[in-house]
Design a protein around this nucleic acid. Structure first.
Lengths: 339, 339
DNA sequence: CTGAAAGCGCTTACAG
DNA sequence: CTGAAAGCGCTTACAG
């Protein structure tokens, strides 16, 4: 199939002829330049409407060296990525945030620790005007420095701080986790375990720290810990391990809703009542929170808003406006049935 | 932040100078033209290497009116989309299939029934060379005709057949569902219900038909039916409804693994043993199949391969090669614990 | 097999 | 406020 007849598409030239002005003028109104006489603007706009003119991206990019595209770099393992409602919400937010602009999102799968030459070339080779990096993974050796050649906005605090300031939006995972744990303490629980996230991701590290801090403050034991990878399966595994090693636990703070649902299945499977015998607090307040047998009491984080905020930061960076590099969004408890 | 110094990037011109040939020649070797003397090719390639030259996309697009971008149109509701491992696998496959090419994937969120003017313009305005449409949703009034202005490959048989032939890859959902149901019949089950997919999606319709066909063939009753939307929550709801209306059922064929996991939670919650009292067969063989309390016996469909195949079809279409419009991939039973 | 030249459709100083 | 003109970095007939 030969390239569909783009030939037919009207050009600036055509609009100029139709409106009886120069191409320069048409270009100016298309780009919203302020210095065009109002009546001329109207005439041109009418012509554009009549011809159904839409500017050619390539020509525009070539002329002003902006690509109007932003890369969305996501980890190679799409399964884990897309399987996590947190990321789904982020992507949704990104898309919504970009909607009012002319920027499009370019999907870039990349194994982050060792991105392909192709990915690196693509990102640094002037194919996009900026990049979103969404994954609270670490070891982003290359991603950390990406910011030197491109505006980059991270979803979640990057683990390694590069030389350039990193723009990111996140929640205060430490505080939020402490809040979730405190909720359990306030309800009289004293043997509170945690199914933590991976110890190599900021979200994993910080939430574990928050859990510990709350327990310490209350003078409670903080050795009932097990690690998962945020997936449901790992939550189930973690719960089994916890049950075996700490059969006395009366509550568990789980670092993600997905893991919490896995944990709850195991609890129920073992005849443990939730929340009577063991109270469970999750993290995210994602759709997974309300989908399971027992609706989750959980720490809410505004995932979609975070994505939207990332988009706004990027747009501001692209406009050359000064932007606060770190944006921390609020969290709160959502009380349902599991605790 | 001003556009990062793309100024520094070497151009064709620079390579030509470095190699001591004309731009035409460099262009030819970059594009792998066969009519360049071998030794010249080497010289040019060396120059390219030395200068770390990477062609400017915009300029290239402008010159040959190819964008080297393909849209990935996904339904507005990213939550449902990304939440479904089936789609995650498809996207993964698409990305992998496109990897050897120079095409990039442009994310386009769109409410399919009523896509925004922006989306339509984007797709038909020459911004992409082709489009993937992934969603077994129907009512794609606009998407059905998209094929007239652009090569389009669907993931899953489109419900409405437009005037142009639709390219798609899918499995034989009808046969596959019949196979899953027959599996239950072969194990002596006789009161086999189904939690079907939405009646307005091909995958929903066809799987229901397959279930019915198998039961009919075996002379079994086929009134134990309830509909879900492929999500886990809807599977749980459906199972509750089924239990209430048909307490005698001894098996259920569920049209997606996600729904199956929801159904199983409800079964267990009600003290029903799986598979002893009620056998469950799912559909997809997605990660969800092995993640729950009871590993799913399910109908496997090669989701990632489907995505990859879609990419290959698109690439062939883009090359102008003739391609078989419909590609049906094989399925098979995977026996685990739920039946 | 190779080069000179035109052209792809915009933007943007530069004059006026 | 508006236009003529150069230029963005490629590709591709057209000659040779």
């Amino acid at each position: 199939m030969p390239p569909p007849s783009r030939r037919l598409a009207p050009t600036l030239e055509a609009v100029a002829a139709e409106a009886g002005v120069s191409r320069s003028t048409v270009s100016r109104v298309v780009n919203g330049s302020s210095k065009v006489r109002a009546d001329v603007v109207d005439i041109v706009q009418a012509a554009i409407e009549r011809l159904n003119y839409v500017p050619n991206r390539a020509a525009r990019s070539l002329a002003n060296s902006q690509t109007m595209a932003i890369a969305l770099v996501i980890p190679e393992d799409t399964g884990r990525f897309f399987g996590d409602p947190y990321f789904a919400a982020i992507v949704q937010g990104l898309a919504r945030g970009l909607e009012p602009s002319d920027y499009v999102l370019n999907l870039q799968l990349a194994s982050q620790s060792n991105p392909s030459r192709k990915t690196v070339r693509y990102l640094t080779g002037g194919n996009v005007d900026g990049a979103f990096v969404v994954s609270h993974h670490s070891g982003d050796n290359f991603l950390a420095d990406l910011g030197t050649s491109l505006p980059v906005v991270f979803g979640g605090r990057p683990l390694t701080r590069g030389d350039t300031p990193s723009y990111f939006v996140d929640v205060d995972n430490d505080d939020a986790a402490a809040m979730g744990t405190q909720f359990l303490i306030d309800r009289g629980r004293t043997r509170i375990a945690t199914i933590a996230g991976p110890p190599d991701m900021p979200a994993g590290i910080d939430r574990t720290a928050g859990w510990m801090r709350a327990l310490e403050r209350a003078g409670l034991g903080r050795d009932r810990i097990v690690h998962g990878d945020f997936s449901q399966a790992s939550g189930a595994r973690g719960m089994r391990e916890l049950l075996a090693r700490h059969p006395d636990l009366d509550a568990v703070f789980v670092a993600s809703d997905l893991m919490a649902t896995g944990a709850i299945s195991v609890l129920l499977e073992n005849g443990v009542r939730v929340p009577e015998d063991v109270a469970v607090v999750g993290f995210d307040d994602s759709p997974a929170a309300t989908t399971g047998v027992i609706p989750l009491t959980t720490v809410h984080q505004p995932s979609e808003s975070q994505g939207k905020k990332m988009a706004e930061m990027m747009l501001a960076l692209l406009r050359g406006e000064p932007v606060e590099p770190e944006c921390i969004m609020p969290t709160h408890m959502v009380v349902r049935a599991s605790a």
